[in-house]
Nucleic acid binder design. Sequence first.
RNA 1: CGGGGCAUAGUGAAACGGCUAUCACGAGUCUUUUGGGAAGAUUUAUUCUGAGUUCGAAUCUCAGUGCCCCGACCA
Length: 395
Amino acid sequence: MKQSNLFTKTVKENPKDEKSLNAQLLIRAGFVDKLSSGVYTFLPLGLRVIKNIEKIVREEMDNIGAQEILMPSLHPKENWEITGRWGVEEMFKIKDEEMGLGWTHEEIITPLMKKHILSSKDLPKYVYQIQAKFRNEPRAKSGLLRGREFIMKDLYSFHENENDLDDYYEKVKKAYFRVYERCELKTYLTLASGGTFSEYSHEFQTITSAGEDTIYICDKCGLAINKEIKKDICPNCQSDKFKEEKAIEVGNIFKLKTKYSEPFQMKNVLMGCYGLGITRLMGSIVEVCNDEKGMIWPNSIAPFSIHLIDLENSKKAEEIYKILQNQNYEVLYDDRVEKTAGEKFNDCDLIGIPLRIVVSKKTGEDMVEIKKRGEDQTQLINIKDLIKNVERLLQ
RNA sequence: CGGGGCAUAGUGAAACGGCUAUCACGAGUCUUUUGGGAAGAUUUAUUCUGAGUUCGAAUCUCAGUGCCCCGACCA
């Protein structure tokens, strides 16, 4: 994409009404726009990141046999009365009080699957969606970390017996770790309260000062324990040494067992539910991956892989743009003629694309300069060797 | 939902109850520029809304709305 066509602009000053780092950087760089508290528009750069994260999540969900669907956001009251959750304060309700906006989807998925699971022969089944959730938060905060409207992947599984639920639960756990690994985000498996229907649930927590949770990480085995269920001894390895950290929950998996199947008279079906906040994951990555100049995106989810900067309005840059595109690299090509070198470099650092290629008079006829975001070292390379070097540096 | 704070140009800031509401950046036009936000000229406002106090309100009071932060809440 040519940057001259990108309709968004970067801004130098931090927005006055955002204190959290992820919101400040994402707004300044033109990834998101705030509509109201906890409600954001995803602009072209931000949407590309969302799509990249979703792609990873879809691949990992499909990989464990889950089938994707899309459920409505608008929910009839009667479904929620069946489980006694119509009164939950988080729910946005439509004026006539006969419909509400979905903040989770057990009330929809359970009767849906009841139509298709007619006997134990139809089990197990795994179904997920990626969709906007609405929660009337008493206090939206921290940019993308706690919104009133946000994108979430929710997976629901249906089983004949507890062993089968347990097996699948472990598969999901592994799939979640693969998602975070591919996003290059270190997460800790964390024991959390399981509500009334299970001893524990499992959270996936990322360490950041922007987080709202406090977790204790076992020195010996690395399992973390949420402060809400504070234990003195690690249930996994019996060690009593922990490190306290602030963290943000980027995923949560639950064994629901019959909590929702029973009210909908889905006899002898056990359920699990598995949430992963797409937009929260994006915000968390920004909180973790940045420096004083801006964001530093992992290559797997960056809006583009390469930021090509032209400082001399040359045919040469245009040619390099074509060469890179022919090799299927996603390139943001800064072809803006009216911008100074300083502005281009600062925008580049703020946006945080993994690899920067500069074309200028200084680089000479056959050479370009190449540099990784987050590193100071630049190198001059011959255009003949460009693809080879790009390949190497993006690994 | 309890507590605290804030609301002025596109963005960020300034202005004792008193002069034509100031500055920087951005954006538009023109000229000169181009390796870390360049220079000059010129253009860019219903001071959140409503009421009140006052000779006079961006400034004080009340109400509303919005936003931020702390806490509570977060299947």
